[in-house]
Design a protein around this nucleic acid. Structure first.
Lengths: 151, 151
DNA sequence: GGGATGAGTTTCAATATGAAACCGATTGAT
DNA sequence: ATCAATCGGTTTCATATTGAAACTCATCCC
């Protein structure tokens, strides 16, 4: 197999992001972190992930600056918390959620919801130009880096 | 290994989304599709993915309604195109791109950009409540489905 | 002290990935 | 019309990665 491909050197920012969080488990761990989980066993129980894989993923996310370990809350051991950088994945989570809500549930089927804590209002995401006009995929183009082939 | 875990039955829409496009390659294929690629060999060259893997992924994305094959443009064979559903992944792509731009490039390092075709303006994404107020991760909570444990 | 958790690591089997070879159908050039 | 090159895969085989379960050490709880 030689080795799983990496997109680290790609000039496309999406590709690099996927390189950091684009595996089966990482974003689910991040999701749980957004949801307030911090302990190894909490993640393990919530996700049903194998322990060795969880350990690997937590280490990778930590190395990549998405999570950080803080020595301990009170008891002992340590906690995994989202860094500033990790919190910047919020839009990614919301975008995935929105897609799932729209397309991956049967009509009437229950799903969890993301709401503003204070008011209970639904959280939405949208895409606009710099000056605030909403824009869809067809009106957008990727400008490539001149030298590089990759988008 | 028993089988790779699936999140299909999860009550969290993000998890289900990841089940559909959460592997190493799928979103990159989708990215290229947004960028206008349609042919097997175009994807293969652009991504440097092994052919057998590409074939598997294209089939999976098609089965899941993200891509569709249209019989032929003019010459022969067929093309892979984003479906309506596939185009709804646009926010996910933009979110990943924005994260990558912000955190995964050295200062001054070049990267591709997503702009409005007509004006060249940068495309941005933001998250708001239903009534339009911008909101960050700390002010949002996930409301779980009562019966289910998973978020 | 003794047992139950917590947080991993190790071991081992099953699965998925990647490279390269192979194949039939087109397309293109002569 | 013929021969080579390209397209769109599939097959095979070696290697990587994943997952389950067992096994360690600590620390908690009583």
């Amino acid at each position: 197999m030689v080795k799983r491909k990496s997109h680290k050197g790609d000039y496309c920012p999406s590709a690099r992001s996927l390189d950091v969080i684009g595996d089966w488990w990482s974003l689910l761990i991040v999701r749980d972190a957004f949801d307030g989980l911090t302990r190894f066993s909490e993640f393990q129980r919530s996700l049903g992930i194998a322990r060795n894989i969880l350990a690997t993923r937590l280490r990778a996310l930590t190395e990549r600056g998405i999570l950080e370990t803080v020595p301990a809350a009170e008891g002992a051991r340590q906690e995994y918390r989202l860094t500033e950088r990790g919190r910047d994945l919020f839009p990614v989570m919301v975008a995935l959620r929105q897609f799932g809500e729209r397309h991956l549930f049967a009509p009437g089927e229950k799903h969890s919801q993301l709401v503003e804590r204070a008011t209970g209002q639904a959280v939405r995401l949208d895409i606009r130009t710099e000056d605030g006009r909403p824009i869809g995929p067809d009106e957008a183009v990727i400008l490539k880096v001149p030298e590089a082939g990759q988008a």
